[in-house]
């Protein structure tokens, strides 16, 4: 379980996170939903130890983030963070070199699923293809938790469909997946749990199937209440 408790962060006098708490369970897909600037990316970066927080605590499987924890949690940022001069095969080799939990067979499967060419230069990839390769780099690690920042944003329809299929496969089974998005459309049927963020605070936190069963509301219905109400 990823446990985020009361994390706070200020950036240039602006309160980016004003006491955010939620949990992302292992074996579930949790979506952190919010409009642009709600603080979603900052939460993911804070979980990964990529930006310091001013207060609160973050635990991953009961442990604080540390270099050793990077063997149990993978982050797929909103851009492909590999030097553009590398070719895809160099990128895969980089991962194999540095990550003990890298799974080359799975990387292979994903490369062919997304039809990626190993000889291509990373800097030349289109946005959709770059995100696919980004998913390969994150998903081919044998880790318990995977964090994704806006995997669908700015990408063509067919790439989005292909990426969404990742969430229906064994790639997400038994893992905890935490995904941020500002447009839920692509994955509304796929997420187990939704956490709605607004101006650095959690405004709703619910189980999606339970919400449909007990209140007959879709995730978008709840979003509409929160962000338009």
């Amino acid at each position: 379980m990823i446990e985020v408790s009361d994390i706070r962060k200020k950036y240039r006098r602006k309160q980016v996170l004003g006491g955010v708490s939620f949990q992302a369970q292992k074996g579930q897909i949790t979506s952190l939903i919010g409009l642009n600037g709600a603080g979603k990316s900052t939460v993911l970066k804070a979980i990964m130890g990529l930006t310091p927080i001013d207060g609160g605590s973050i635990r991953i499987g009961g442990q604080a983030i540390s270099p050793a924890a990077y063997n149990t949690i993978a982050f797929i940022p909103d851009r492909l963070t590999m030097p553009g001069s590398m070719r895809l095969r160099d990128g895969l080799q980089f991962m194999a070199d540095f990550y003990p939990r890298w799974n080359p067979a799975r990387a292979e499967d994903l490369m062919s699923f997304f039809r990626l060419e190993r000889g291509e230069k990373i800097g030349r990839l289109s946005k959709g293809t770059a995100m696919k390769f980004n998913l390969v780099l994150g998903m081919a690690q044998d880790v318990d938790y995977v964090l994704m920042d806006e995997p669908f944003s700015g990408i063509d329809l067919f790439s989005r469909e292909l990426i969404a299929e990742v969430f229906t496969s064994q790639l997400v089974e038994d893992r905890g997946v935490l995904i941020t998005t500002h447009e839920i459309g692509d994955i509304e049927h796929l997420i187990d749990h939704a956490v709605l963020l607004d101006q650095g605070r959690v405004v709703r936190d619910f189980d999606c199937e339970q919400m449909r069963e007990e209140h007959g509301k879709s995730v978008i219905d709840v979003m509409r209440e929160v962000y338009r109400g």
């Binding site: 229906t168 496969s169 089974e173 049927h189 796929l190 199937e209």
Partner: peptide, 17 residues
């Protein structure tokens, strides 16, 4: 369960349920 999730494009948890 796995096949069903892939075929119907749903989350494996939902297939299980």
């Amino acid at each position: 369960r796995r096949e069903l999730a892939a075929r119907m494009k749903i989350n494996p948890n939902t297939a299980q349920k």
